[in-house]
Design a protein around this nucleic acid. Structure first.
Lengths: 217, 217
DNA sequence: ACCTTTCCGTTGGAATTCCAACCGATATTT
DNA sequence: AAATATCGGTTGGAATTCCAACGGAAAGGT
């Protein structure tokens, strides 16, 4: 277990927790540690998710499989990231997604209820505060994504997206963490249509860009 | 304060809390009670949201105002509903939305931090569990909305929407809480286009419907 | 019963996006 | 340096959606 202390300390779940207080918290939380080989299935859609995972080593992928068996990668979670926390605390029905190990992976599984009993420990409240913050921020991010996807025209999606991005970056021009294809996927449009919209917006003087560096006028 | 006990007991925040334990919890939580007249502004976009609200009486509206001053109603919160909890616990920047009282309204404002200190009280952990569940379920709902909005064609949006709705209703046919215009807004499409898509899907034998009663084949 | 309003389906042309294909520029590999 | 792969812009026709307008049915008010 000690081997994961550095990873845990840099996770959002244990943010602000001091190394001294980590061991007692973990002793009470009693995460179950499991290892998976590359491409092994961690969770199967349809199961009940009774716990949530923290990636101690490696990388996992959250994927959605539709009725025809098409796989869509919903998210990639790497070391120190957590997954399944919303399903664990919502405790509402079976999982709508599956989780696969994309590399050899170690996952620490936490029981949602157990974390509620930690408040009396040193920094136990900090842990709960972190958990609330994680869920709250996820809601805000999804809210923003809904706002973007609700726009009917590609140009409006782009503007909404860049305005939101401008609020979280001070850097000018902004550096987006996406290439064109990924940006198009995020906005829910065709890559070629996005390219066309971008160059038309540049011509109109609304924005400027080069690769993934964007400026909003 | 006692006057709000019945409302509080039926709120999701105090779900499962017994009447006996309510008073001590409230004494520690120390919500600030404020009244507003119809159409009065409760929160102004741009402010920092240091607390979240529980509607003790009346109804409030969450609205987004764009640069041109156009107002969009994001949500309506009535008695026993809560608002601003995600912003309060995310503690990330100013509010992107405003909140107005649509009727004469009483709101109980809770300090996010104070609720974390309640764990040692009777059912204090239940309260925290409720809070986590509220945030978690909001994330799941938004996730589903993203899934719907990510569909490129109206027919696919409708199918995704109905499939998700079918999971939470046992009733057949399903009874949707929307009229056509509201359904179109939720799916992010034009009402007339939705109507056209629906009748074409009915003709194709994919669905059946009458008013807001829908069946998925 | 009559009038008014709301809701919902339909229609047709305009606008937008999709989709497949192609091409040049840049990066990577051998 | 040559060959290969990746990335991003462009293009044109097909498909889809928007948009405004109309009309009938149902609901609500007087």
């Amino acid at each position: 277990m000690q081997q994961f202390y550095p990873v845990l300390l840099k996770s959002t779940l244990f943010r602000q927790i001091t190394a001294n207080n980590l061991a007692p918290l973990l002793a009470a939380a009693q995460p179950m540690i499991k290892t998976f080989t590359a491409n092994e299935r961690i969770w199967q859609a349809g199961e009940q998710a009774a716990s949530f995972g923290l990636v101690g080593a490696g990388t996992v992928q959250i994927l959605k499989e539709d009725a025809q068996g098409n796989r869509t990668i919903v998210a990639t979670v790497s070391e120190a990231g957590i997954f399944g926390e919303a399903y664990a605390y919502a405790s509402t029905g079976p999982l709508p997604v599956s989780v696969d190990a994309s590399t050899n992976t170690t996952v620490l599984f936490f029981e949602p209820k157990r974390l509620l009993n930690l408040a009396h420990l040193l920094q136990g409240e900090q842990l709960l505060s972190n958990l609330l913050q994680i869920l709250a921020r996820k809601s805000l991010l999804l809210n923003q994504k809904v706002e973007i996807l609700s726009q009917r025209k590609i140009a409006d999606k782009v503007l909404t997206f860049l305005q939101l991005e401008a609020k979280r970056q001070t850097r000018k021009p902004m550096l987006l963490p996406y290439n064109r294809q990924e940006m198009a996927d995020f906005l829910g449009v065709e890559r070629s249509a996005l390219s066309a919209a971008l160059s038309s917006m540049k011509k109109a003087g609304l924005i400027d860009y080069r690769k993934n560096e964007f400026t909003l006028f």
